[in-house]
Nucleic acid binder design. Structure first.
Length: 321
DNA sequence: CTTAGGGCTATTG
DNA sequence: CAATAGCCCTAAG
């Protein structure tokens, strides 16, 4: 009676995604019970989670509704018994444009639905305006989700992960590169395990969602950088898209950036002793990386990059919160 | 008790 | 009208 269908909110969806990233698909009860997600999922049963996941993944798949085409309801007889349901599976041209959530693009003023529907994931609500971390967490979440969904016993290689994510979300041009950077970081943080060229989730990892840092206040942040790093190729028309283009271009020939990444990696390695220091190192790493990209666009010199590194090292000494 | 999968139906475009 | 999203039901482990 009093059951007018409860639409899923973006918070619930996000909690579910993160839950799957942490526990894996099929662990619906675990996800529902997990104190981390429970607050968002109090109104949902494990069955609801399963059903919702089914809906989310099939519509993101570009595949037809729920695996079996239900256009022919209730009279499915006289069908070819087997060897007939060849799912296309190949590269879907336009992977369901309904998911405007896409990749973390820091300024998403593009197409906000008038009624504020649940189509745009509100990470910002979770991470208090820290865009850098929010992008990082997005990558982590997608990686864990991909691995736990793909469930390959020997792990999945970069291509598999890339195509998994590509099928569900819009990705930037240099996505593969960014992703492998993230993968390497996760390996060095002992959250992933690399065998051959494949990545596996290390057991005993409390996954990406746990990396949220409540201590970071938006007001303390230097104000997010204006650059729009992520854009789809189809979106490259305005100056923002143009900037993204230049960034990608610059990145390709930017050995300097690679050096800086290594440097940042070393810093984070040293800081790995304590959680808070690690967090700090991540901050610095991401900031450095972002700054470098921006700098490249402005045709900066090695020299100024060095200076930037120094500035950031100084920044390390200052209390973050 | 939980999960996977099929089915039903109100809602949406 | 068809497609979809949320729920329900049931078999299987």
């Amino acid at each position: 009676m009093g059951n007018p269908k409860q639409k899923w909110t973006s918070e619930e969806e996000e909690a579910l995604r993160a839950g799957v990233a942490k526990h894996g698909t099929g662990k619906w009860k675990d996800i529902q019970r997990d104190p981390e997600f429970n607050p968002y999922l109090v109104n949902r049963s494990n069955i609801d989670l399963k059903d919702k996941w089914r809906n989310m993944s099939c519509s993101a798949n570009g595949q037809g509704p729920r695996e079996k085409s239900r256009t022919v309801k209730a009279k499915a007889n006289s069908d070819a018994p087997a060897s007939q349901v060849s799912t296309p599976q190949t590269a879907v041209p336009a992977p369901a444009a309904r998911d405007s959530a896409a990749v973390p693009s820091t300024d998403d003023s593009s197409k906000a639905l008038p009624d504020g529907k649940n189509s745009s994931i509100d990470y910002a609500g979770y991470f208090s305006g820290n865009f850098v971390e929010y992008e990082m967490v997005w990558y982590n979440t997608m990686i864990f989700e991909a691995l736990s969904t793909l469930k390959e016993p020997n792990g999945s290689d970069t291509s598999a992960i890339v195509s998994y994510i590509e099928q569900r979300h819009e990705v930037p041009q240099n996505f593969r590169r960014l992703l492998s950077t993230r993968l390497r970081r996760l390996v060095s943080q002992d959250k992933l395990e690399k065998v051959q060229n494949c990545y596996k989730v290390k057991s005993n990892v409390d996954a990406s969602f746990g990396t949220k840092t409540p201590a970071l206040k938006a007001e303390n942040q230097p104000r997010p950088l204006q650059t729009t790093v992520y854009r789809t190729t189809t979106d490259v028309v305005d100056e923002a898209g143009n900037a993204a283009y230049k960034i990608a271009e610059a990145e390709n020939k930017s050995f300097v950036a690679a050096e800086a990444v290594k440097e940042a990696d070393r810093i984070s390695e040293m800081a790995e002793d304590t959680e808070s220091l690690l967090q700090l190192a991540k901050e610095i790493f991401e900031k450095l990386f972002l700054t470098l990209q921006v700098r490249r666009v402005n045709a900066c010199t090695q020299h100024s990059i060095r200076a930037e590194s120094h500035a950031l090292l100084i920044f390390e000494n200052e209390p973050l919160y």
